[in-house]
Design a protein around this nucleic acid. Structure first.
Length: 232
DNA sequence: AAGCGATTCAACCGCTCGCCT
DNA sequence: AAGGCGAGCGGTTGAATCGCT
């Protein structure tokens, strides 16, 4: 493994936080509040950058952080959310109380990725080209309610669409007996199929294409057999 | 007990986005 | 409208630890 700098600067690579540094950072944030991390870096007396302070607080020092191994429920939720959202670690972590994006990402890469090799994809839409990954729009937390409510109902049966010629590079979420509390008009009938053309359930970035079908034969979907709903 | 490869996970890096001026 | 800056994100790195021989 070669560092990107290729030895241009003899950086002391890992700079682990010492307990006394943690104490200083925690005390500073408790006194001044979160935010303005550059000021934290300058004023706390820590020889750390703002980013480093932010990361340390967010991932380890926050009082609501849960440490220790993942429960089966948490694992299951991560797997489901990853199917739904791809590598949106912050979004996934946001749905798992006490867990951070870094922790979820590490856990996926070290534990779940092996167990769910089919689930291994860089993003929902980057089956083969990585350059898309860096350009995908960011999803704010305000995008969460719809996708999260679906995931948390346990009704979600996400499956990668593989045979359709009409909606290649999309993936399908089948919702059976759909009873989620959505705030947009949707779902006639008992079985609906969502196809996302390029992105997952990104509520205010994309429209959602709703394929109306009772059949699970995704390959038979016609491009004119769907209705398109736009997020408010 | 020692050596060494594999694994884990804390921390860093580069980039994008959103807000403010 | 454009530029600067801070915050946040996902990918990557590498030190620490584990486990096998």
């Amino acid at each position: 493994m070669e560092s990107k700098g290729m030895g241009l600067k003899p950086q002391p690579k890992k700079n682990l936080w010492k307990p006394e540094e943690d104490v200083v950072l925690k005390a500073y944030i408790e006194a001044h509040g979160e935010g303005n991390w550059e000021a934290v870096s300058r004023n706390s007396g820590l020889n750390r950058g703002g980013k480093s302070c932010r990361l340390r607080w967010k991932n380890y020092l926050r009082p609501d952080i849960k440490r220790g191994g993942m429960s089966e429920d948490e694992e299951d939720l991560i797997i489901r959310l990853h199917k739904l959202l791809g590598n949106r670690w912050s979004l996934i972590a946001g749905r798992i109380p006490g867990r951070t994006d870094n922790e979820v990402k590490n856990y996926w890469n070290t534990h779940l990725n092996k167990r769910c090799p089919r689930g291994k994809r860089k993003t929902i839409d980057s089956n083969n080209d990585d350059q898309e990954t860096s350009k995908k729009p960011r999803i704010s937390d305000s995008d969460l309610p719809i996708s999260a409510s679906i995931a948390e109902t346990g009704l979600l049966d996400a499956r990668k669409e593989e045979n359709s010629s009409n909606i290649t590079s999309s993936w399908i979420v089948e919702l059976q007996s759909f009873h989620c509390d959505l705030d947009f008009p949707i779902v006639p009938g008992n079985s609906a199929v969502f196809g996302f053309d390029d992105e997952p359930f990104t509520t205010n970035l994309d429209s959602i294409v709703l394929f109306e079908t009772d059949a699970l034969d995704y390959g038979s979907l016609e491009s004119n057999s769907h209705k398109q709903y736009f997020m408010p």
